[in-house]
Simulated scan of single mutants.
Amino acid sequence: MANSKPRILNNNRDMVWSLIPLVIACLLIAGIASQCSLSPGGPSQGPIPNFDVDAALQYDASELNFPIRNPRVPEGWTPNSGSRQSIAGEQGGDVSNVGFISDAGRYIKLTQSSASEEVLVPFAVGEARYASGTESIDGAEWIVYDQEGSEAVWVTDLGDVRLLVTGSGSTEEFTTLAAATTSAEPLTP
């Protein structure tokens, strides 16, 4: 037997009444799976992942062929991430990354590498950048790559290693991490 009314007479109201049970079923499934939540005040910060920066940098110091430093960051800064990569090519090299969340809640990443500055900067930020100035911190000259609408990048060359600082941190936080890193003694392998 055919539908109670011809298909040509179906309208938007019929479509809405058909979708309501589907939407309720989707919400019910998402609620059961705990994949949605209601937060009327907006999102809240979740827990910062725990990362053992001391062990990671000590391991990198034993495996990589350039000096690795473990900066002593201020109380309240939390290490939350780390990785190791390689940059192919003549001026490339190994890369050691560690990230911190400052006490103000901003992410700052420290990269240590044997790669040249010309290769390291585009590798770290994913695009070509041009130097916009310098910062002198504890006797080390840091090249600043600051571009409108992007995170700043600071790089210094200590001869056998290049240090790079980037992230959403403030100038003061960049200065703090830069000073802590250059003043740290290289770890023994």
Rank of each mutant, 00 (worst) to 15 (best):
I108G: 11
F51P: 05
V161G: 07
E172V: 02
I87Y: 05
I108M: 06
D54V: 05
E90Y: 06
R106T: 11
M15Q: 02
I87C: 01
V125A: 01
T166Q: 03
R162E: 12
M15F: 05
V121C: 13
L177G: 09
T171G: 01
S34E: 11
M1V: 05
D94I: 04
S170N: 08
F123R: 04
S168Y: 12
E118S: 14
G169Y: 08
I8Y: 00
I20C: 04
P47Q: 15
T181I: 05
M15P: 00
Q91I: 04
R162W: 12
G99T: 03
R13T: 14
R106E: 09
L187H: 00
T181F: 07
S86K: 15
A131M: 00
N50H: 09
G126F: 02
T176I: 03
F66M: 11
Y130R: 15
A2V: 14
G167K: 05
E90P: 00
T171S: 02
F100I: 10
E141Q: 13
Q85G: 13
V98I: 12
S39G: 11
T176P: 05
Y107K: 04
G133A: 11
L19N: 05
E135A: 15
E117N: 06
A128H: 13
R106A: 12
P189H: 09
V125E: 00
F174L: 14
S102G: 09
A128T: 11
T134C: 02
N11V: 11
W142M: 04
A184L: 01
P67C: 08
G149D: 07
L64E: 15
Q35D: 06
T176S: 01
Q58Y: 10
T188I: 07
A104Y: 05
F100M: 03
V125F: 02
K5F: 03
I24F: 13
A55Y: 03
F51Q: 07
G99C: 03
V153F: 06
A104V: 06
E135D: 14
F51R: 10
S183I: 04
K109Q: 13
L28Y: 13
I87N: 04
E90H: 11
T176V: 12
F51W: 14
Q45I: 01
S37C: 04
I143W: 00
P67W: 15
V95E: 03
S96A: 14
D157Y: 08
Y130V: 11
S81C: 03
V98C: 07
P186V: 04
L22C: 13
T134D: 09
E117D: 07
V144N: 10
D146L: 10
N65V: 02
P67Y: 10
A184V: 02
L38M: 11
A56M: 07
V98Q: 07
S86G: 15
V73Y: 04
A179E: 01
L28G: 15
R129G: 13
R69V: 09
A140D: 01
N70Q: 14
N50I: 14
K5R: 01
L27R: 08
P189Q: 08
